[in-house]
């Protein structure tokens, strides 16, 4: 009972924050609302018993990506002006796109064979994640590393003047 109440509170918080990201007129507000949405997602992972993923969600998304986003936003000139901040354009194509995505998501939700787990006994997941990353899913893991490495090299090429052809 109390579990369900907590779950819906966290879910409502996440959705409200996500709506804030999309609807806010000021991009700084959007960024801070994004923090709430990311925390809410971490809470969702915690409800699923995925302690490691929940912590990494906060570490990577709030501690890394969100802070860098804020950093970039604050270095932008005249950021609080609404005209340059979060403009909403192209309402009709956006509505079509949203309807399409919502339809696909609904279909996925209704068709998925949901597995239910016992919520009272969360197990430690860190060992299993490590084993899987370095065992069964080694190739995708290494591929992700290569993608990151490529991105790093690309960033250096773009930012260094003497490397630009």
């Amino acid at each position: 009972m109390i579990y369900a109440v907590l779950f819906y509170l966290v879910a409502a918080f996440t959705v409200a924050c996500a709506a804030g990201v999309a609807l806010s007129r000021n991009v700084v507000y959007s960024a801070f609302a994004l923090m709430g949405a990311l925390f809410g997602t971490a809470g969702m992972f915690a409800f699923l018993g995925a302690d490691f993923v929940a912590t990494v969600q906060v570490l990577v998304y709030v501690g890394g990506i969100l802070v860098l986003t804020l950093f970039a936003i604050m270095l932008t000139h005249q950021i609080s002006e609404v005209r340059v901040s979060n403009r909403s354009v192209a309402a009709v194509p956006a509505a079509v796109l949203i309807a399409a995505v919502a339809g696909v998501l609904l279909l996925a939700i209704l068709r998925a064979p949901w597995k239910t787990i016992d919520p009272t006994a969360p197990q430690a997941t860190t060992y299993a994640i490590g084993e899987l990353f370095l065992g069964r899913f080694l190739l995708p893991f290494e591929l992700a590393s290569i993608v990151l490495l490529t991105a790093l090299v690309g960033a250096i090429v773009l930012s260094r003047k003497e490397l630009r052809g």
């Binding site: 700084v28 801070f32 923090m35 302690d51 490691f52 912590t55 990494v56 906060v58 570490l59 709030v62 501690g63 890394g64 969100l66 802070v67 804020l70 950093f71 604050m74 430690a124 860190t126």
Partner: peptide, 24 residues
């Protein structure tokens, strides 16, 4: 927590967000 050290590193990130918020 089973992920204690990681948790401490993660949760202290909020301090930065707070400082950025204060600064802006």
């Amino acid at each position: 927590l089973n992920v204690g050290v990681l948790y401490i590193t993660a949760v202290t990130a909020l301090v930065v967000v707070g400082i950025l918020m204060a600064g802006w």
